[in-house]
Design a protein around this nucleic acid. Structure first.
Lengths: 340, 340
DNA sequence: GTGAAAGCGCTAACAG
DNA sequence: CTGTTAGCGCTTTCAC
C-alpha cells in the first residue's frame, strides 16, 4: 500500500467512486461537476445526486496537475497588522471575487530573506499570478519573479525598477507634495518623526522627497526623531514629547504614518498647543478608522484600495504585462494645518 | 500537444531537466532536494548546482498528489479589516512558523453561504488542517468539517456545539462578568451599544450574558442602540450621541467593541461628562493600538493571540482531537470605570 | 548509494 | 452526448 497522509482518517472519495455510484464514466462525472461540455439533464442529475450523497469533494491537486491550471494568485505582503495591507487585500479581493481566481496571502515580516522564501513557496504551487509588495527584493526573488512565466505585479511603490508590472504611488512625490503644502502654509520650523528602519523603503522615499520639497522652499528639517518597533498612538505620542522637549520652537510635525500622527496630536492637545496655528501636524495614509476623532489629521491618501484593485485587474487580464501604473496620492488638509 | 495554461509563458523546469543536467536519475534529484535518504556528497553538490543553474522550482502540485501530503492549513475568518482576526492569524503564524505547515487564509465576509464555499474550496486542496472562526455554520459546512478527515478547530467561541475541537472564550461569560463589574461599581442606568447584525453571534452572546449578569444584580438595560455597517470611532461617537440624547440619565455605556467605545468616550469628553463618575464606559477586545489615548477604555481581553496559538498547536499535533479549550477573558478596568 | 517502474486523481484529446 | 486513452510531475516501493 502507498504512503498515506497520517491525517487521512477516512479515505477520500474520488471521481471513480462517484462514477460507479452514478453508473457513468469518470469523464462524465468530471464534465458534470465542472459544467463543461454537454451532458444530458438525466445523467447530470444522477451524477449530482451521487456526488452529494457520497459527500464528494473534488481533489484540486489532481485537477491542477492534469489541467496545468491553478486558480490561485499569490499575494506577498510584509504584515497583516499594519492596516495598510488589509486595505490592499480588500481591493484585490473585490476584483478577484468576480473571477475564478483566489488570493493566497503570504507574509514576509519585513524580512527580504523571508520574502524570498515565501515567493518560492508560492511559485511552487504554480499560481496564475503573483502580487508582491514593494520594489526591493533579494536578487534571487527578482529572478524568480522574472522567470515565473505568470503575470507579476509589484504594488505600493513606483520609485524604482519593477521586475515586470507595478501599481502604486510615488512616495518621493508624496513627500515632496507634502513639503510644498506645509511650506505654502507658512510653517518654517519643521520636524520629521518616523521609523528608524532602513527596511521601510517607502517611508525613506517619502522622507527623501520631503527634504527635497523643503529645500525648494529654502527650508530644511529642524529636527528628526526615530522609533523602533511598531507604530501606534503611544509611539507617536512619545516621539512628539521627545522632539518638542528637545526642540521646543518647532511649528510642524510630519509623521511617517497617521497612527503616529494621531498620537502626536493627542500629546499636543494635552499640552495645550494651539492647533493648527501654533503647531501643525501631518501623517500619511488616510486611514478611515481615524474618522471620528476630535480633529482629522492632515494626511495624504496612499490609495491602498485602488492599488489592490488595479493590481488584481492586471493579474486577471492574464497578460504578461510590464505596465507601470502610477496613482496620484491626494492631500487631505483635515484640521491640523492652517489654510493655504 | 496537451493544453497549456495560457499564463505559461516559458516552460517550467522539471525534475527531469535537473536530472539530465546533473547526469543522474530523477529519483536522486528528488532525494537530494527533499534531503531524504542517503546521497553521496558528490552527486548532492552536482544536483544542487544543476538545480540552481536552471532556476528549478519544484512543483508542489505534483509532489502533493504523489505523496498525498499537503503542508497547508486552511484558516477561514470573516474579514481582515476587523483587527480581531489579524491578531488571531498572528498567533497561528507564530506556531505554524516553527513547523513545515503554512496557513492559507480565506474570508467569509460574515456570510454563512460564502463561508461554506470557502471551506469547500479549502478542503478541495486537501490541507493538513482547518481552522474556522465561530461555531455557527451551514449544515453542509458542518458536514464537510466533520468528514474532512483532518484536524479541525473552531476558534473564538466555546458557547455551542463544536464540530470537533474548539478554542476560545465564552462570550456569554464575558458579558456576564462585565455586568458584574459594572454593577459592583455602583452603576445603575446602563445602556448597550452594538451591532444590529444577528449574524454577529459572539456579540449577541455577550449581550445575552450581560443581561443575565445585570439581572443577577436586580438591574436591566435602560436603553439600547444599534448600528449597521462597520465599527469605528465615528460609529461609536454617533451611537453615544443618539442614546444619550434619548436617555440622558444613563450612567454607563457598554459597547460591543473597543473601537466603538473609544468613539463614545470621545463624545462624552467633548460634552464635558465627568468620566468615570458621571458616566462610565466599557468595550470589548483590549485592542493594543488604542494604548496612548488620553484615557484607557475599560475592556475585556478576548485573548485573540492566544486563541490563534492554541488552535495552531492542536492542528500541528496532527491529532483528530475534539478537545475544547476555554480561555478566560480578562477584565481591564482602564480609566473609564469607577474603582470597585 | 542509486535507479526503474508504477501510480496519485484528475483532465485533454480524440473517437464514436 | 458519452467513453477510452494517455499522461500531468512527482514520490513510493522495490530492486540492485
Amino acid at each position: 500500500m502507498r504512503g498515506r497522509n497520517p491525517f487521512d482518517g477516512k479515505p477520500q472519495m474520488t471521481l471513480r467512486d462517484v462514477a460507479e455510484a452514478a453508473g457513468v464514466s469518470e469523464m462524465t462525472v468530471s464534465r458534470v461537476l465542472r459544467q463543461r461540455g454537454d451532458v444530458s439533464e438525466k445523467t447530470r442529475e444522477r451524477v449530482f445526486a451521487a456526488a452529494r450523497q457520497l459527500g464528494y469533494v473534488p481533489n484540486k491537486i489532481a485537477g491542477a496537475l492534469a489541467s496545468n491550471r491553478v486558480n490561485l494568485v499569490g499575494v506577498v505582503i510584509p504584515s497583516l497588522s499594519n492596516m495598510v495591507f488589509p486595505d490592499v487585500l480588500g481591493g484585490i479581493g473585490e476584483v478577484l471575487g468576480e473571477t475564478s481566481l483566489q488570493p493566497v496571502i503570504g507574509t514576509s515580516r519585513y524580512d527580504p530573506e523571508q520574502e524570498e522564501k515565501v515567493i518560492y513557496e508560492m511559485l511552487s504551487w504554480r499560481p496564475s499570478g503573483l502580487i508582491v509588495s514593494g520594489l526591493e527584493h533579494t536578487d534571487a526573488a527578482r529572478a524568480m519573479m522574472a522567470n515565473a512565466g505568470i503575470p507579476v505585479v509589484e504594488v505600493m511603490d513606483v520609485d524604482g525598477e519593477p521586475v515586470a508590472a507595478a501599481v502604486g504611488i510615488s512616495h518621493e512625490a508624496a513627500g515632496r507634495a507634502m513639503a510644498r503644502e506645509i511650506a505654502a502654509r507658512g510653517y518654517r520650523r519643521i520636524g520629521y518623526l518616523g521609523s528608524s528602519s532602513i527596511a521601510d523603503h517607502r517611508a525613506q522615499k517619502r522622507l527623501k522627497g520631503f527634504r527635497e520639497g523643503l529645500a525648494e522652499a529654502g527650508l530644511g528639517l529642524a529636527d528628526e526623531c526615530f522609533y523602533e518597533g511598531s507604530s501606534g498612538f503611544g509611539t507617536g505620542r512619545g516621539m512628539a514629547e521627545e522632539i518638542l522637549t528637545r526642540t521646543p520652537d518647532l511649528d510642524f510635525l510630519y509623521f511617517n504614518t497617521d497612527m503616529n500622527a494621531v498620537g502626536g496630536l493627542i500629546y499636543c492637545l494635552e499640552k495645550g498647543y494651539s492647533i493648527p496655528d501654533q503647531i501643525g501636524l501631518a501623517g500619511f495614509n488616510a486611514f478611515e478608522v481615524l474618522d471620528g476623532l476630535p480633529m482629522r489629521i492632515a494626511t495624504m491618501d496612499s490609495k491602498r484600495h485602488e492599488i489592490g484593485r488595479k493590481a488584481a485587474e492586471l493579474i486577471a487580464s492574464g497578460e504578461l504585462t510590464d505596465e507601470i501604473v502610477t496613482l496620484e496620492p491626494e492631500f487631505q488638509p483635515g484640521d491640523t494645518v492652517r489654510d493655504g
